[in-house]
Design a protein around this nucleic acid. Structure first.
Length: 295
DNA sequence: GTGTTTGTTATCAA
DNA sequence: CTTGATAACAAACA
């Protein structure tokens, strides 16, 4: 479930390893993943050099030479795994992914695997794997104009930007009858928050997820703006939250999971008051909260 | 077999 | 027209 901190972590890793390198070949394994059509997609990227890796909300933007932008959305289960030049061992098999660093460990096996939808080969031997178990994620080639349009039309301010402050929160809540949680999940209002960080932020702010947005007080808006920034910043520091059945138990370092106060803790004790954390569906999403600490 | 998981869009209802 | 709520999508697991 990659939200802003997870996507930002991936962005930094890709930037470090891939900027300045040329794509020598692209293999689309599952055609629907490449929104432009596999043939066009491959042609557009082959031979192009990666110039820059940026992010808007949960959307990754890879800028290539010649006005070519690759938009990548991981949706729920997308992964981008980068492996340096594969070292061949006897028998022609590549070295176990486990031995090739943290990112590879996350997939827990060799690559490509059965969830690999696309593979990018870079000059010098590095390979980037796009894995997506549930096939919701996508890759799309656009030009700068289209990229700017997509960003402008779909994404509100970033949580860490100055624009996201108490006044902004207050403004987007004013007169709204929808639940505060649904509003915070709206990417057009705030870019990058997902189910995990919204639950965490609402707990930290002492606001119930089911509260009508319009009833938010000025004090609560101040608190909410503040905790959103603190939580997102910290989560980025910790390289995101790995909340997946396979990876939890492997004890990944730099994991925000152990700092979660309410998400995934249904029926457990509230770390603040000792009461029971409740879990119920709000706005069609699993929502975790403490009815004692949140009002 | 059933219910649950989530980011985003599409669709429907008020 | 606006706003809000919900279904749908995909696939695997308990």
């Amino acid at each position: 479930m990659p939200e802003l901190p997870e996507v930002e972590t991936i962005r930094r890793d890709l930037k470090e390893h891939l900027v300045g390198r040329k794509v020598v070949s692209v293999d689309i394994i599952f055609p629907k993943t490449a929104k432009n059509g596999a043939a066009f997609f491959v042609k557009a990227l082959t031979g192009r050099t990666l110039k820059e890796v940026s992010r808007r909300g949960k959307l990754l933007i890879l800028k290539f030479a010649s006005d070519t932008y690759l938009l990548i959305h991981l949706k729920m289960t997308g992964q981008l795994i980068y492996l340096e030049k594969e070292k061949k061992i006897a028998g022609g098999h590549s070295l176990s992914a486990k031995k090739q660093g943290d990112l590879a460990t996350a997939v827990g096996g060799e690559l490509p695997n059965k969830h690999t939808r696309a593979v990018f080969d870079f000059q010098g031997g590095g390979r980037l794997f796009f894995n997506d178990l549930r096939k919701f994620g996508y890759l799309k080639i656009v030009d700068q104009k289209e990229m700017e349009r997509v960003v402008a039309e779909n994404y509100g301010p970033e949580p860490l930007e100055k624009e996201l402050d108490a006044a902004y929160i207050k403004r987007i809540c004013a007169g709204k009858k929808t639940r505060i949680k649904s509003l915070l999940l709206d990417q057009k209002l705030i870019a990058g928050l997902g189910n995990i960080y919204v639950d965490e932020a609402l707990f930290a702010a002492g606001v119930l997820p089911g509260r009508q947005a319009g009833t938010l007080t000025s004090e609560e808006a101040v608190k909410l703006a503040k905790v959103i920034k603190v939580i997102i910043k910290k989560a980025i520091e910790y390289r995101g939250t790995t909340f997946s059945d396979y990876r939890d138990s492997k004890g990944n370092k730099g994991n925000f999971s152990r700092l979660l106060q309410v998400y995934g803790r249904g029926k457990e004790k509230c770390l603040q008051c000792g009461g029971a954390i409740k879990k119920e569906k709000i706005g069609g999403r699993g929502s975790h909260y403490c009815s004692n600490c949140q009002k």
